[in-house]
Design a protein around this nucleic acid. Structure first.
Length: 99
DNA sequence: CTCTTGACGCCGG
DNA sequence: TCCGGCGCCAAGA
């Protein structure tokens, strides 16, 4: 497995996330079966520009600072479950339990 | 080769 | 339930 294959695997998982749902860095790392949350984050930072990056959040549903207000627009558009009045995803409901 | 840094996560107070 | 701190893994200086 080369680095490129790893990147591709991560990107593929992110692309497979349906609208209104989200996955955590740790979950993605677990699905890919290689590296850890930090590595997934590293991949996203480098080549995550072409995928629905806003559907990837912290394990507690909070947003990485890099998502900026842009992600909020997508969430509103996709009807993503959010915590009332707070820019935080309701991980309990939004977590994509299949994969 | 060692130290720091970063799109993270879990444990304990 | 909220906060702070420690642990992890790889890349870069």
């Amino acid at each position: 497995m080369s680095d490129e294959d790893y990147n591709e695997s991560v990107l593929r998982v992110v692309e497979s996330i349906p609208p209104g749902k989200v996955l955590t860095y740790g979950a993605i790392a677990d699905i890919v079966g290689r590296g850890g949350p930090r590595q997934v984050g590293a991949v996203m930072a480098q080549v995550g520009g072409g995928v629905p990056w806003w559907r990837v959040v912290y394990a507690d549903g909070s947003l990485p600072g890099c998502h900026r207000p842009d992600a909020l627009d997508h969430y509103r558009e996709e009807q993503t479950p959010m915590r009332a009045g707070e820019s935080v995803v309701d991980i309990r409901q939004a977590f994509w339990k299949d994969a």
